[in-house]
């Protein structure tokens, strides 16, 4: 069970949280002004990086707040978290870091040792 840093309550167990997808995808102020492609991008296009990923979580069984966090999708480590509506902190690279180690073993998901 991961430990997740709620920016309000502090570090708490994963069981209290709900994942809510990629962060910083604001709902367009005038959806009607978007063409179908742009609206489709808003609805479905996500970066899905291997590496640092800004994403939304909700401390559902805690303070109830949605917040943003940067988590490395390769190591499954949280790097930081911050209140919803605030900008991603500086120094958190937005794509997979080039020095992220290769998967130690690409057959990891199979079978028992």
């Amino acid at each position: 069970m991961l430990l997740i840093p709620c920016p309000i309550c502090g570090i708490r167990p994963e069981a209290e949280f709900t994942y809510a997808g990629e962060a910083h995808i604001a709902r367009p102020a005038e959806p009607a002004s978007l063409d179908d492609h742009a609206w489709g991008e808003f609805l479905y296009a996500r970066t899905n990086p291997k590496g640092d990923h800004a994403e939304r979580w909700r401390h559902t069984h805690g303070c109830g707040r949605f917040f943003n966090a940067v988590r490395n999708t390769h190591t499954d480590r949280f790097i930081t978290s911050y209140l919803a509506g605030t900008a991603r902190p500086h120094g958190t690279p937005s794509a997979a870091s080039p020095d992220a180690p290769a998967m130690r073993n690409d057959t990891e998901q199979w079978g028992q040792a």
Binding site: T18, T60, G64, F66, A84, G85
Partner: peptide, 13 residues
């Protein structure tokens, strides 16, 4: 309720 909270907190605070 979660969908309502989501919009309220993050889109229309």
């Amino acid at each position: 309720l979660a969908q309502m909270e989501d919009y309220l907190q993050t889109e229309w605070p």
